[in-house]
């Protein structure tokens, strides 16, 4: 249990540095350290699937952010923060914190599974019958690709749409140059 507290303190410190520092590269590296801390927590909670995904996506995101940071001329942030914006964001975070306190009371203790409090949860069915019903030894895969395949379909659709948007917006050459475009008023 101590290891979780150490990792959580590490994550909080890394995110505070990432928010407060003025050097963009240090902020990106702190975000990377935060992500690796999160993946270590997943690993210690015995969730290797999410740990693998987290660490791999973290590495890719870190590469993109570092390349985007290095190729910019502006690597330092200057200027003061606005007073009104800070007050509003602190107030919103405080309200969310007060609402979250009520939620945290209903959660089971950190590190214990949810079905210790709800024995008739749907996850119990997956665990007891997943191997016989789907034949997949990895129950996470049997949930995301068999029991909850609609979720995966929606996720794939979101990814596909966002990729189309990103490639269309970020491409260098357009198919129609502005000279050949017809004005709207003529048509």
């Amino acid at each position: 249990m101590t290891i979780f507290y150490i990792l959580m303190i590490f994550i909080v410190i890394a995110s505070l540095i990432a928010v407060e520092t003025t050097d963009l590269l240090s902020a990106v590296i702190c975000i990377g350290a935060m992500g690796f801390g999160v993946s270590l927590i997943f690993l210690f909670l015995r969730a290797p699937d999410i740990a693998i995904t987290q660490i791999v996506v973290e590495v890719l995101g870190l590469i993109i952010l570092i390349r985007a940071t290095i190729s910019r001329d502006l690597t330092f942030i200057s200027g003061d923060k606005e007073f009104f914006g800070t007050v509003v964001s602190v107030a919103i975070i405080f309200v969310i914190f007060l609402a979250g306190l009520r939620v945290f009371e209903t959660l089971p203790e950190f590190g214990t599974a949810i079905f210790t409090e709800a024995p008739n949860a749907a996850s119990q069915t997956y665990i007891s019958q997943g191997l016989d019903k789907t034949g997949a030894a990895n129950l996470v895969t049997s949930v995301i690709l068999d029991y909850r395949a609609y979720d995966t379909l929606g996720e794939a659709t979101v990814l596909f749409t966002s990729i189309i948007g990103a490639t269309v917006l970020l491409r260098r050459k357009t198919k129609n140059t502005p000279e050949t475009l017809q004005p709207v008023s003529e048509s």
Partner: peptide, 18 residues
């Protein structure tokens, strides 16, 4: 081996991209 060991399509795809 996504249906036998930890991992799966998403993690493996990201590794291929990396």
């Amino acid at each position: 081996f996504g249906h036998l060991t930890p991992g799966g399509g998403f993690a493996g795809g990201v590794i291929l991209a990396s």
